[in-house]
Amino acid sequence: MTEYKLVVVGAGGVGKSALTIQLIQNHFVDEYDPTIEDSYRKQVVIDGETCLLDILDTAGQEEYSAMRDQYMRTGEGFLCVFAINNTKSFEDIHHYREQIKRVKDSEDVPMVLVGNKCDLPSRTVDTKQAQDLARSYGIPFIETSAKTRQGVDDAFYTLVREIRKHKEKMSKDGKKKKKKSKTKCVIM
């Protein structure tokens, strides 16, 4: 069974824990209790493949930012979460993405942009803004509501699919490099 290491990042209060708990335990946590770091595991079937999701729910508070490099190193894919009623959390996505790329030393890291709290009427981040940002990053965008469960499975499952595509691409690139290195030079 394939294991996928997913990391949920975003500013404090955007609903990272609520999304994760909704996926794992099928219930909505409405009281806000700032996370330092929590880890969850769940076995699911995605596109006919049974897999184990190892999900790291991270601290959004700035005082825990020193811990970010460590979990970013171990993560295979990242859910970059903002709240649709919090423009600052949307603007912060850029910083999370840049930090992930720096730590992973790669421009090509599996990510999904997630606009959470889409059940709320007080939207300050337009869907088109988020779609445009995701398009500019070359990553999928999904709106979710941890409260109603809308888009929750889709967000995590899409990230797994992005990781699969990335692994497939990397193995193809690896095979191309191996083929090239088999060419021999004969000096007579």
Rank of each mutant, 00 (worst) to 15 (best):
V109F: 13
Y64P: 07
D57C: 00
T2W: 05
T144G: 04
K165R: 09
D69S: 04
A134T: 04
E76H: 15
T158Q: 07
K176N: 12
L79R: 00
G10T: 06
R135D: 14
V9Q: 10
G15H: 02
G77C: 04
R102H: 13
G12Q: 02
D54Y: 02
A59G: 01
G10S: 15
M111E: 02
I55E: 00
E31V: 04
R161M: 02
K172E: 05
L53P: 14
G10K: 14
Q61I: 07
Q61M: 03
V103Q: 04
F90R: 15
G151E: 04
Q99G: 04
G138V: 02
F82R: 00
A146G: 15
S181P: 14
K169M: 08
L19R: 00
Q99H: 09
D33H: 01
V14N: 15
Q99A: 12
K184V: 02
K176M: 12
S39E: 04
Q22I: 01
Y71C: 15
H27M: 15
K5T: 07
R102A: 13
D173T: 07
K117T: 14
Q61K: 01
Y157D: 08
P110G: 02
V114S: 01
G12T: 02
T87I: 12
I24D: 00
H27V: 10
N86D: 15
D38N: 00
Y137Q: 03
D108C: 09
P34Q: 14
D30A: 04
E143G: 13
C51S: 07
R135N: 11
A18N: 15
V45M: 11
R73G: 08
R102Y: 04
V44D: 05
T127L: 07
L159F: 01
E62M: 04
F78S: 02
F82S: 12
I163M: 04
Y40H: 02
Y64Q: 11
L79I: 14
V125D: 11
M170S: 13
Y4Q: 04
K16A: 15
V14D: 15
L6T: 04
R123E: 13
E76A: 15
T124R: 07
Q25D: 04
V125A: 10
K165E: 09
F78L: 07
R135C: 12
D126T: 08
K167H: 10
K179M: 05
F156E: 09
Y64A: 09
L19V: 08
K182L: 08
S106M: 13
P34A: 13
D153Q: 10
T183M: 07
Y137I: 11
H166F: 10
V152A: 09
Y64D: 05
C118H: 08
S39D: 05
Q22T: 12
E62I: 04
M188T: 08
C118R: 08
T2Y: 06
T35L: 15
I36S: 00
V112L: 13
E3K: 05
D132K: 09
K104S: 14
G60Y: 14
V152S: 12
F82H: 08
I36K: 00
G138S: 05
A59M: 07
K167M: 10
E98M: 09
N85Y: 08
N26D: 09
G13Q: 08
L79C: 10
V44R: 05
I21A: 05
A155R: 01
Q70H: 15
G15E: 01
D105G: 15
F141N: 10
D108K: 14
K42V: 03
L113K: 01
G151S: 14
E63L: 00
T50G: 08
R123S: 12
M188C: 07
I93V: 07
R102I: 11
I142C: 13
E62V: 03
I100R: 01
I46H: 08
K5H: 01
F82L: 09
D105E: 10
E3L: 02
L23R: 15
I46N: 05
D153S: 10
V29D: 01
D119W: 07
V45Q: 14
V7L: 12
T35V: 15
L113E: 02
R68M: 01
V14Q: 12
A134G: 06
K176G: 07
A11W: 05
L113R: 06
E62C: 04
G77W: 00
D47G: 05
A83D: 15
V109E: 01
K88L: 12
V44K: 03
T127H: 06
I36P: 00
R164W: 10
E76D: 15
T2M: 12
L120M: 10
L56D: 06
N116F: 03
P110L: 03
S17Y: 02
L6C: 08
G75D: 02
R41A: 00
C51V: 11
I55Y: 14
Q22R: 12
R164A: 09
R161A: 13
Y32Q: 01
K128V: 05
K101S: 11
C185P: 10
G115V: 08
A11T: 12
R41Q: 00
H95K: 12
V152Y: 10
D57M: 00
I84V: 13
A130D: 05
V14Y: 14
E31D: 11
G48N: 04
E37T: 01
T158H: 12
Y32V: 03
S17A: 00
G77R: 03
T20W: 15
Y137S: 08
T183P: 12
T2P: 11
G10E: 01
K104Q: 13
V44I: 10
T2R: 11
A134C: 10
A18V: 03
E162T: 10
A11K: 10
F78G: 00
R164I: 13
N86G: 11
V81A: 11
V14I: 05
M188S: 09
F28L: 02
V103F: 15
N116P: 00
S65R: 03
S122G: 12
K178E: 09
E162Y: 09
M188P: 10
A130L: 10
D30S: 07
Y96L: 14
T35Q: 15
G77A: 09
D33L: 01
L23A: 13
Q131T: 08
S106T: 10
L19G: 12
C51F: 08
I142V: 12
E3D: 11
L53W: 03
G115S: 06
V112T: 01
S122D: 13
D154R: 08
L56G: 05
K184H: 06
G13W: 03
Y71H: 14
D105F: 14
P110M: 03
K16S: 15
G48F: 02
G151W: 10
R97K: 14
F82G: 15
I55P: 00
Y71Q: 15
K176R: 04
T124Q: 12
R149W: 10
T124Y: 08
D30E: 05
A18P: 15
D33N: 01
T20I: 03
I46W: 07
D173M: 03
G151C: 07
N116H: 14
E62S: 06
T127M: 06
G10P: 07
